[in-house]
Write a protein that binds this DNA or RNA. Structure first.
Lengths: 205, 205
DNA sequence: AAGGTTATGTGAAGAATTGCACGAGATTTT
DNA sequence: AAAATCTCGTGCAATTCTTCACATAACCTT
């Protein structure tokens, strides 16, 4: 239940959570490591072992209460609150993200949008007004925002990341196809669809 | 150099490729496992071991020829050609993807766009006309498309995936926050930004 | 209430992945 | 041309991750 949780385990918890939320929507009350495993493509033993690192959430013979397990996982992942997120990059992708409803009902809310294009600054994106990237540092610091999503072109990504770091950001979800260089105290997760496509084309043909 | 390559290794190759392309842009001719490792955040020994599974691409004392290694990795990943991709879902995200130039110059080209919304069918998205999702099966089969990107709402994703599978799809990049059920012969990679954000929030606070 | 079934949590075994360290080839320096 | 430096490829060791299998507990049926 402490800090020696392997990162690979942490990475699976959101999958469990998502599958549980889905099961809950179908009206189920209870599930088993078996059933959950089939849903997420992970062995039942693996799931039991992962969960056992945090506590004893199940009941022998019965399985897991879906509502209870959702609650526990949300606490563990700090998904039991709403996180404000800064969106940097108001291009097509930024627009799509700003307008996507799926974030707000899963614990994340975009609270500010930045861009460096004078033509975009001042324009509206979703329910936000695009602000100048020059102000990132002070604005996110003032708002206490600790998470950012980066949807700028690769050529602008490192500079934007540097500004975010100066503003005290703690986590960056990076959509730009470039490896960001940040201090060890800042977490980065990358989304690069082309890398995932290439992972698959290896097995094709 | 055969089929017993661990999947986890295959997953790292696109990272190496991306970093190499970046290094090449800076005008460099040569790199080392050390330098590449710093760029992608992977140990030098790991990189050497990974590459050695496919051949001896480096030279002692000198390192790796960037152009040569790019060429080899592209062959290994089948990224030495252009793959046609079907895009299913013409919402905001689908639009952003269809208009993103980054795919075409990294080996993937969107060749058709589908949606089930009558208001969208017939409209233009990027350089494509949106087609009825009802025709997916025949259209992708006729075109010989084997890769799809799925950007429909979660509630429509499984049906769309089923249609793709019937049409002979081999790989699906799934943006919907739901686990798809497909035959073992079909590969699926998922992109779920919220899962990645939750992976990071575990470590925050 | 006893027997049967289900399904957890976990120690131990097994498998997979990563890191270490060194021989050997290539280049550069003195 | 010898010495020093660099860096690959790789066998082996260390570590990490996954699976197995079973004692235990809860529920269900008769």
């Amino acid at each position: 239940m402490d800090d020696k949780i392997p990162d690979i385990v942490v990475g699976r918890l959101p999958k469990y959570l998502q599958a549980l939320l889905y099961l809950q929507e179908t009206g189920k009350q209870t599930t088993s490591s078996q059933e959950l495993g089939v849903k997420v493509g992970i062995s039942a033993a693996q799931i039991r072992k992962d969960l056992s690192l945090f506590g004893e959430f199940g009941k022998q013979g019965t399985g897991y209460s879906i509502a209870f397990l959702i609650d526990q996982l949300q606490k563990i992942l700090h998904a039991d609150r709403v996180w404000g997120v800064a969106l940097v990059g108001a291009g097509d992708l930024g627009h799509a993200i700003a307008r996507y409803a799926g974030f707000s009902n899963r614990g994340f809310r975009i609270v500010m949008v930045f861009d460096n294009d004078p033509a975009k600054i001042g324009a509206r994106v979703g329910e936000h007004t695009v602000q100048d990237v020059k102000d990132i540092e002070s604005k996110i610091r003032a708002a206490g925002v600790t998470i950012a999503m980066l949807t700028v072109p690769a050529s602008a990504a490192q500079n934007a990341a540097d500004a975010l770091v100066r503003g005290g950001i703690r986590a960056i979800l990076n959509y730009a196809p470039i490896t960001l260089s940040v201090p060890e105290t800042v977490r980065v997760e990358a989304i690069d669809p082309i890398q995932q496509l290439q992972h698959m084309t290896y097995y094709l043909e």
